[in-house]
Design a protein around this nucleic acid. Structure first.
Length: 508
RNA sequence: GGCGACAUAGCCAAGUGGUAAGGCCGAGGUCUGCAAAACCUCUAUCCCCAGUCCGAUUCUGGGUGUCGCCUCCA
């Protein structure tokens, strides 16, 4: 049973798919007028996890995410830079993919674009005009009439009269009602335009998502998502248009999920806020952050808070996430090493028969805990996709693995007592969690020196010589020399740690 | 002016009608030549007031505060 918080009802509801075993999702994508910033990334990472979870839970998932590639801001950027709107959108769509790929966001099944859905958009506007929900002005502008729609405002809980008083509503005398919004904008000089029954022009904001979701997911689909700033007016207007055009107030999305904002300095991260972009000093777009921190670390940072809560972004937080990630990575390597030994036949493999040694094996505890934590993990994810909680279960398993591995290395756990099947099962559980969270898909950073496969052979052999010399000094109790070597290596960014198994080193 | 969300330890963050997970930091300890790492232990009556209840941090009402939306915004 999966529960989700539906913005429409403002309560957690039990999810019932429209079609058994299938989930259809529409998530509002970006308007590619510049590179995505950290706030943009949140909904896509969130939905990526949701999709992974549904898939692991046995659902067939169909996920559609649009690009609003015809838009005022894109046209403005094109005119300013002296290039075409197409060049601007293509450049930023490429930037979007580059950033999202680094964050392990799997691609959507379909990425519709406004410029490629024009026929459907025009058809929908025509339907709205025909049904009396929209009106065409002399100049070719088409507006949606909110007064013609008795259900208008049901998602955001607003009444037309309430929004009037004190609101910053633009006054446009040509509109029948101030809240009416544009479905079609008549063409102006210097702007791209498409032919339509209302004259040359281009779509207004909102309509594209209605047309695209209808085209690719049908009249009814399960989820619609995006940032909570889209609740009004964007999603409200989408509902109005779609249900009016389809003629069924139960059509369109069944569940509305909205993620909270990323804040910086306790204010919503926004690229329209020049002050904020400036204050973050080149640490604002996903690309800028990725220059310094691994994508999987940024991803983990985003998922350590529940998606509906606000999330304060700062470098200190990213560093915390990085350390957390390091600990998870450590268990990954420990399991990897134990698994290799299992395959090399170093432990007991056959658990089929009653075996006293196996029953008494410390690995049995690991097995029970693993199954329990996996079950907890799924329970957390099933409760409105609580990644923050789920991740702590993965962390708990990582700690247990560390303890077990430590016992093995120290010789407290004898190889003959280790049940190889349990090791492999634990590894499967751990990786199953990782797969849903979406980490360990890129080269996992190693935490032990001897496993640093990416270090050059030269550095390795030099370090071997240096540490051997230092060991000689230590054997002679020449602490001054030993410490000097360690201190000077540290100054160059290499950390030496003495362990019972000898000295190890790693880059700081 | 309208609508909405949130308020949990120094910081971050889950959660429940029966006295609150986890992480970071800090303190103490084990280990160590020292250090690091690792491990162990310790650190909150859940914004305020009233109500419902045997019992509320969790429900209801009021208040205060913060943030967001009502213009573009993930």
């Amino acid at each position: 049973m999966i529960k989700v918080f539906n913005t429409m009802s403002r309560t957690k509801e039990i999810f019932k798919p429209l079609k058994k075993g299938e989930v259809s999702i529409y998530c509002c994508g970006v308007t590619p007028y510049n590179a995505p910033h950290i706030g943009n990334a949140r909904p896509f990472v969130t939905w990526d996890v949701i999709r992974r979870f549904f898939k692991k839970s046995g659902y067939e998932v169909r996920y559609v995410q649009n690009f609003t590639d015809v838009d005022d801001k894109i046209i403005k950027a094109a005119n300013e830079q002296g290039v075409t709107w197409k060049e601007i959108s293509e450049k930023n769509i490429a930037a979007y993919f580059k950033s999202m790929d680094a964050l392990n966001v799997r691609h959507a099944d379909i990425y519709p674009k406004v410029s490629e859905t024009m026929e459907d958009i025009i058809k929908m506007i025509q339907t709205l005009v025909d049904k009396g929900f929209a009106y065409v002005l002399d100049n070719g502008d088409v507006f949606y009439s909110v007064e013609a729609d008795k259900n208008y405002g049901k998602l955001s809980g607003r009444k037309l009269e309430d929004m009037m008083a004190g609101a910053r509503v633009e006054v446009d005398n040509r509109k029948r009602h101030p809240m009416d919004f544009a479905l079609w904008k008549a063409s102006k000089p210097g702007e791209p335009s498409w032919e339509s029954p209302f004259g040359a022009g281009r779509p207004g904001w909102h309509i594209e998502c209605s047309a695209m979701s209808l085209k690719y997911l049908g009249e009814k689909f399960d989820f619609h998502g995006g940032g909570s700033d889209l609740i009004f007016p964007h999603h409200e207007n989408e509902i109005a248009q779609s249900q009016a055009a389809i003629g069924d107030e139960n059509s369109f999305a069944q569940y509305w999920l909205h993620n909270g904002f990323i804040t910086i300095g306790n204010e919503k991260a926004s690229k329209s806020d020049k002050q904020m972009v400036k204050a973050t000093k080149g640490f604002f777009t996903v690309e800028e952050i990725l220059a310094k921190y691994a994508g999987e670390v940024v991803r983990l940072f985003l998922l350590q808070t529940h998606y509906r809560n606000p999330l304060e972004f700062s470098e200190a937080r990213i560093i915390e996430a990085q350390e957390f990630f390091g600990k998870l990575a450590k268990a990954y390597w420990q399991l990897d090493e134990l698994a290799r030994k299992v395959h090399a036949g170093e432990f007991i493999k056959d658990t089929g028969e009653k075996n006293f040694a196996i029953t008494a094996s410390p690995a049995c505890g690991l097995a029970d805990l693993g199954e329990r934590l996996l079950s907890n993990f799924y329970a957390a994810m099933s409760d409105d996709f609580n990644t923050a909680l789920a991740i702590t279960y993965m962390f708990e398993l990582a700690k247990e693995i560390g303890g077990y591995y430590g016992g093995f290395v120290k010789g407290e756990i004898l190889p003959v007592t280790i049940d190889g099947d349990i090791i492999l099962r634990t590894r499967d559980i751990y990786m199953e969690m990782a797969e849903i969270i979406g980490i360990f898909e890129q080269p996992v950073p190693v935490t032990k020196a001897e496993e640093k496969s990416d270090e050059s052979a030269l550095v390795d052999s030099l370090m071997k010589i240096i540490l051997a010399l230092r060991q000689e000094a230590r054997a002679a109790k020449n602490w001054a020399t030993a410490d000097k070597i360690r201190d000077e290596l540290k100054a160059t960014g290499i950390v030496v740690e003495d362990t019972p198994q000898g000295a190890t080193w790693k880059r700081a």
